[in-house]
């Protein structure tokens, strides 16, 4: 395939080798090429945050990166959080505190929270507010999202 590049990328611990057109957005690669449809597309210009994934351990908008840039990188998506039939404490907390309604922004909220609580295990409510402010939600009014993140922090700290 002319113009295509071969990339090797590890997503959620699994190594994939694919040919991609350089202009292919990372989020399209994840959703369409790898069929990891948990990551959502909401604006394609970096504002809504629904497509947030971890790229080499740090959050990134997968709509603002090209798949070719992931060559040799490690990506983590929402599909990686629950393991062996058990929800991650963040997911549990979102369920317990009604941190989601339609669920469309949720992958972005969860991945953002995952990075945030790694960096700041004992956050204040104001810090939580700021941390999730990069993900737009139209359903919840954020209150229960903030409750969820606070609860997840308490739960994870307790362990």
């Amino acid at each position: 395939m002319v113009g295509y590049r071969r990339i090797v990328v590890k997503v959620n611990g699994v190594q994939y080798e694919r040919e991609v057109e350089p202009r292919r957005l990372l989020v399209d690669f994840l959703r369409d090429d790898l069929e990891l449809i948990g990551t959502h597309v909401g604006c394609e210009h970096g504002i809504c945050g629904a497509c947030t994934v971890l790229f080499n351990g740090r959050t990134a908008r997968s709509c603002l990166m090209f798949a070719v840039q992931a060559d040799g990188a490690e990506v983590m998506t929402v599909e990686s959080l629950a393991e062996n039939g058990k929800l991650h404490p963040i997911q549990e907390a979102f369920r317990e505190h009604h941190g989601l309604q339609c669920g469309f922004c949720t992958p972005g909220m969860l991945m953002t929270t995952y990075e945030f609580l790694n960096e700041n295990p004992d956050p204040s409510e104001e810090e939580v507010r700021k941390a999730i402010s990069g993900v737009l939600c139209r359903c919840t009014g954020y209150k229960q999202v903030i409750d969820s993140v606070m609860a997840a922090a308490a739960e994870m700290k307790g362990k």
Partner: peptide, 9 residues
Amino acid sequence: IGHVPIRNR
């Protein structure tokens, strides 16, 4: 500048 994911990149 932007949000954390923006500053990360």
